[in-house]
Amino acid sequence: DHDVVPEDKFQETLHLKEKEGCPQAFHALLSWLLTQDSTAILDFWRVLFKDYNLERYGRLQPILDSFPKDVDLSQPRKGRKPPAVPKALVPPPRLPTKRKASEEARAAAPAALTPRGTASPGSQLKAKPPKKPESSAEQQRLPLGNGIQTMSASVQRAVAMSSGDVPGARGAVEGILIQQVFESGGSKKCIQVGGEFYTPSKFEDSGSGKNKARSSSGPKPLVRAKGAQGAAPGGGEARLGQQGSVPAPLALPSDPQLHQKNEDECAVCRDGGELICCDGCPRAFHLACLSPPLREIPSGTWRCSSCLQATVQEVQPRAEEPRPQEPPVETPLPPGLRSAGEEVRGPPGEPLAGMDTTLVYKHLPAPPSAAPLPGLDSSALHPLLCVGPEGQQNLAPGARCGVCGDGTDVLRCTHCAAAFHWRCHFPAGTSRPGTGLRCRSCSGDVTPAPVEGVLAPSPARLAPGPAKDDTASHEPALHRDDLESLLSEHTFDGILQWAIQSMARPAAPFPS
């Protein structure tokens, strides 16, 4: 592969990997390779389809078979030569091979799209000592099968071997295949498990690692696999990028399955594409389908809103127990993405979901129960707010008499603000006073009005108090039968009158 990737590009890729991570280095090298001529790309395919690569990765054979028959990708048995050289000459001794072996032994695996480039050397060096003999053996194999790289107009793939297949390693990572398949204008990513390549439709969760975000852009890794992070704060999961590491605690105790298979379609829109997988259930989501939507993949363990709600429900009964003089119970939860139609709101002032922060849900004790107040519409209280300059209440639009249902020339009671006709409430011909108009209920007259088809109010509507207090003497005590009587009149003013009279009014101040 030294004929494909020059030394300066190799060093530039290593520097970019240390600065921005393996995914960015892979993407940059792939983009550079696509700008080369067809001879360089053909050399790339020839390096990929060597015999030892085909033996190690069985899924490469179907890719090789898909090439046109007129494309010669065979390799000479006596060494490598550029395709432009007409004579089959043995190339001179390859010093770059020693360079590659020494550099890969030092860096474990470079971040390139060629056999030198995919593992994360920093994480491997940190986690190597417990498994040094086995990992050293794996390093000797890295130059042979560490990076199976493929690129063409139909298929483009980048393979990364790992030393996680050490025997006896619980939940060992089998390997990473960062794979971009450009077929019919689409893009897919796969993962390699035990020599087999699994596409998103049959993606397997190998051991402790999972394909957290099938994305090839942005600074985030394709698999949430930063070796420096180790395990999740809650004892979460091992990262795919942690090559040759000792077994780590796999999943939280509440995880239903340690080796679950995540779905390959969004649980909201039932469509495929780039998904984020939940650590607590097999569901996966688009970032845009979450509520609120996320802009980037959160670091650490992530769970959907259903799993978060289940966790909150487990903690909430203990938080609601009476604990005198104790601060509110704080339950730190990872930043969760909410699927459509589901929402768990945190306290005000918290950062938005999706940031690399930890939301704190506070379970406050329930407030003391209070008697429910009568629910009145805002339009129902409008007549009470229509007060004239002299303190006389004006008529609201649409006000109707509670007896006849007519809204023409209605009066407004100064005591309960109900609309009424003087002739309907006082049919006996009582003279109307000039000021202080009161309806039949507030004036103490319980004589029913002779209106055909309208039920008369119940005599129990009024329960006047002592006459010594004029204001308190007109406080009506309405009961269920009074409400039914008012409802039978089918008037809004009657219902409003009952609601206003049912509310307690402050006692009249004593004259000074």
Rank of each mutant, 00 (worst) to 15 (best):
L376F: 08
R283P: 12
E321W: 12
M503N: 04
G346T: 08
V387Q: 01
G444N: 12
L364R: 09
E452A: 04
T435F: 10
P448M: 13
A248W: 15
V451S: 08
G429R: 10
T408A: 10
L252C: 08
P389T: 05
L333T: 12
P256Q: 09
Q392W: 13
V446N: 11
A380Y: 13
V268D: 06
L352Y: 14
T301Q: 05
H286T: 14
D469L: 09
T471M: 09
G405C: 13
R461F: 09
S378P: 11
P324K: 06
R461I: 07
A419S: 10
A477R: 03
P476W: 05
V360E: 10
D481M: 05
L252P: 12
C281K: 10
P298S: 06
V387H: 05
D377S: 13
L437C: 08
P457R: 11
C277S: 07
V403E: 04
P282L: 09
A499S: 02
P374W: 12
S254I: 11
A417E: 13
A380D: 06
P293V: 14
P256R: 12
H259A: 07
P448W: 14
A310D: 12
E326A: 07
W498A: 01
V454H: 08
A284E: 14
T357I: 08
P427L: 07
R461E: 04
P249G: 10
V246Y: 13
G434H: 14
C424H: 07
P332V: 09
P348K: 10
P292D: 03
R400Q: 12
R412D: 05
E390L: 13
P374E: 04
A472T: 00
G444W: 07
P332T: 08
C413G: 02
P511F: 05
E314Q: 09
S379D: 06
L252F: 08
M503D: 06
E342L: 15
P327V: 09
D409F: 01
P427K: 09
A353E: 13
C289V: 08
T408W: 15
Q316I: 11
P459G: 10
S485L: 10
L487S: 01
H490R: 01
S441Q: 10
C307V: 14
G402T: 02
L275M: 11
P282K: 04
S379P: 06
P397E: 10
A463P: 08
L385S: 08
L359S: 14
V312L: 10
D470G: 08
S306M: 02
E350G: 11
D493S: 01
T430M: 15
H415S: 02
D377K: 03
P464S: 08
A267R: 12
A456H: 12
P427D: 02
H382N: 13
L411E: 08
P298G: 11
T414Y: 04
Q257K: 09
W422D: 08
I276F: 12
P324A: 10
D377Q: 13
Q316S: 13
P247V: 13
E330I: 10
P332I: 06
R338Y: 14
L496R: 02
I495R: 02
D264G: 08
D445K: 09
K468R: 11
G405S: 13
C442R: 01
G241A: 08
P293Y: 12
C386T: 13
E326N: 09
P511L: 13
E343G: 07
Q392K: 08
I276D: 09
R423F: 01
Y361E: 04
R270C: 13
R412A: 05
H421N: 01
C416V: 02
P317H: 15
R423L: 10
D409M: 02
T408Y: 12
P509A: 13
R505M: 11
C413I: 02
Q242F: 11
L352H: 12
P327I: 12
L437N: 11
L359M: 06
S254H: 09
S443V: 08
D445F: 07
T331W: 15
C439Y: 02
A380V: 09
S378F: 15
G465T: 11
R318N: 15
P328R: 10
A380P: 06
P247L: 13
H474R: 07
C304W: 06
Q309S: 12
H421K: 02
A460R: 12
R345A: 08
L364F: 10
L364T: 08
P389E: 07
P367V: 07
G336T: 09
C404P: 02
V312Y: 10
P324F: 13
P511I: 12
S305G: 11
T301K: 07
S339V: 14
R480V: 08
P427E: 12
A472R: 08
R438P: 08
L333F: 10
L373M: 14
T311A: 08
P327A: 08
F492Y: 03
A399M: 02
S299L: 12
L359P: 05
S502N: 02
G465Q: 09
S443M: 09
S254N: 12
G272F: 04
V446Y: 08
A456C: 13
R323N: 10
T408I: 11
D409V: 01
A366I: 07
P292Y: 12
A504I: 03
